[in-house]
Design a protein around this nucleic acid. Structure first.
Length: 352
DNA sequence: AAGCCGGGGGG
DNA sequence: CCCCCAGGCTT
């Protein structure tokens, strides 16, 4: 039985945070005024399931180009989607725009957790994080770092995801009334740098005297997680339609994988290589010897690459409004998701 | 409650 | 090669 009595975590943790907080572009300078709610919101959405180092360059690009809710709300959808390319989980970019427009209509970002939760793309974690970090309210902020730190602090053996309600309750017992935003960020800094998933650095940890997991001698055993199913293998073909100095791009449907993103034409993925089925035009297709592999969250994709050149002045009406001819030399600026960017690099080598 | 949705870092 | 990550939405 873990000892679930409240314990004094906040004081030593905040003391440690005051000396060791990471310097991050969305954090206010030490001693400065509260951080800009727009920057807090943008960073929290970008940080969903995404590590700090990956987010920073995107955060700089977005805040330079769209420095406020109003600026982002007025942006073209295609520009925002292209700027998000490579960061992943593209529903976040669609929700980001929808949320920016909601906030612009409201006139400001709501300050309470309950109001924040009504906005697109803001769930339990993000709503609590914004309320605490941007507006100084007490909120129970639970992300993957907090789950790891808390299950270790209390040596909680119940496996995820079933343990989530218990973890939230335990986090509530250690969350202070004052400096809740700093407390949340301190827990995340601790989880990121000290209480890490593989090899926690307990000798550097300010919470070691309070940690049941350390006392067990195997803190890395927490959190306990359910086994995951093996990833299926799937196959597809990407089509490189060359017309003069341009190549055909399409826009993927809003729903589903890579939704709303610019892309090379493909058919649906399948359980066996589909070859030239679903080619966007008839022609003398050539298959490349190189293929592209890419891992997604829930399957692995192997892609065959096919090329064709069509007459310079033809314009197959087949593609409708979703077709776009893009200069091959500028393909890097198209904002392609990574799996298509990989393929485009291979095509570019061969097709030039 | 379970499935869907990217990509890169690190052991 | 594997597991992991400043989760949210849909069904």
């Amino acid at each position: 039985m873990p000892d679930n009595a409240p314990r004094a975590i906040a004081a030593p943790l905040l003391h440690w945070y005051d000396a060791h907080a990471r310097v991050l572009p969305w954090r206010a300078a030490p001693g400065a005024n509260a951080p800009d709610p727009y920057r807090v919101w943008l960073s929290e959405v970008m940080l969903q399931q995404t590590q700090v180092a990956s987010v920073i360059p995107y955060f700089e690009t977005f805040t330079t180009r769209w420095p406020s809710f109003a600026a982002l709300a007025a942006a073209d959808d295609a520009d925002v989607m292209a700027a998000w390319a490579g960061l992943g989980y593209y529903a976040r970019a669609r929700n980001l725009l929808a949320c920016a427009r909601e906030v612009a209509a409201l006139g400001r970002l709501p300050e309470t957790e309950a109001e924040l939760l009504k906005l697109r793309g803001i769930g339990a974690y993000t709503g609590a994080a914004i309320a605490a970090i941007a507006f100084g309210q007490r909120a129970v902020v639970v992300d993957a770092n907090v789950e790891r730190v808390v299950t270790r602090l209390f040596a909680l053996a119940e496996p995820l995801p079933g343990a989530r309600p218990r973890i939230r309750a335990l986090t509530d017992t250690i969350t202070p009334d004052a400096r809740a935003g700093d407390f949340a960020q301190a827990m995340m800094d601790l989880g990121s740098g000290i209480c890490t998933a593989r090899a926690p650095r307990c000798l550097l940890c300010p919470l070691r005297p309070d940690c049941d997991g350390f006392a067990t001698g195997a803190p890395e055993a927490f959190p306990v997680k359910a086994k995951k199913a093996p990833k299926p293998q799937r196959y597809g073909t990407m089509f490189w339609v060359r017309r003069g100095v341009e190549v055909l791009l399409v826009r993927r449907p809003d729903k589903g994988l890579l939704g709303g993103m610019r892309a090379l034409p493909t058919g649906p993925w399948s359980d066996a290589p589909p070859g030239l089925a679903d080619a966007p035009v008839a022609g003398d297709w050539q298959l490349l010897a190189d293929t592209v592999s890419h891992g997604f969250t829930h399957f692995t994709l192997d892609v065959t690459l096919a090329t064709v050149t069509i007459p310079e002045h033809s314009d197959p009406a087949h593609f409708g409004a979703d077709g776009e001819w893009w200069p091959v030399d500028a393909i890097e600026s198209a904002g392609l998701p990574t799996v298509f960017a990989k393929a485009a690099r291979v095509f570019g080598r061969v097709s030039c």
